[in-house]
Amino acid sequence: MDWSSVILDPAFLAGLDRMAAKRFVQPALAEEAAAAMLDALSEADWQRLRAFGGKSAPATYAYAVAGRAMEDFARRRFGRPRPPQWLQEKGQAWVRLWRMLCLERQWPETLMQVLGKEFVDGLVREAIAVIKQRIPRCGEPGFSECCVTELGLEQLPDDAGDSVDQALARTQHKHALAVLGRLLNPADATVGSGPSDEEDVLNELIRRLALTADDRLLLSLSYEDGLSSRKIATLLETSAATVQRRLAGLHHQLEQALRVMGLADTTAAGEVNLES
């Protein structure tokens, strides 16, 4: 395979620039990231691309490898400390914005301008305001080093971020159990019926909803990544109306399942506070 002709094709290089510009809103940083991707691909006579087995177009494979190289670049350049617990509970969208804002020191106004439309309305603005208010040293030079210790966080092993995913999953599981505990015992929001009861209820919900793989991905993109219906529609090659319709259907299913199980949630928005 003549990788140099694939990678050095201006159309391919433009794709690398697009990826970098989405990930790093500051032009100088995006340029640096694109150069780092190119370096990673060409390193040791295209070593990283040698696993190509012909199961896709060569350029597509190279983009997939480049995407991983871009995150490697971000980790090398800015580190990857564990996000604070309260941020993990807010979901991946907040964690992503925290990383861009506090660790990578990307400009808040540009983040709002470039990413505002990709997220649910107002999410970027709200996240930036809350993060800056709760982490005053966010974005200061050396934040990564100083605040890993300062916030009592631990530096993660070099595992490409898998353990961050696992930590998020555990946190969210725990949080869901706390929510179910509150629904089981509405009189006392601080005491559940016991962890096994709540696990049982969660398992019963899983059984009743019988989510498909598509549903799960849609939920991740919407509730975890905080993406707008329009952005999700672009990624999934469907219409925003279809995305909204499916999300509304899932909301209805969950509501109905909770009602049937005698766990109807009657609290209004803002009444729940499970953060410790």
Binding site: A176, V179, A213, R216, H251, D265
Partner: peptide, 17 residues
């Protein structure tokens, strides 16, 4: 349903081992 309840449950329910 409280939106926070909905978010918390859906975030946990999306996982499948």
């Amino acid at each position: 349903m409280n939106p926070e309840t909905e978010k918390s449950l859906f975030r946990a329910l999306r996982y499948q081992d």
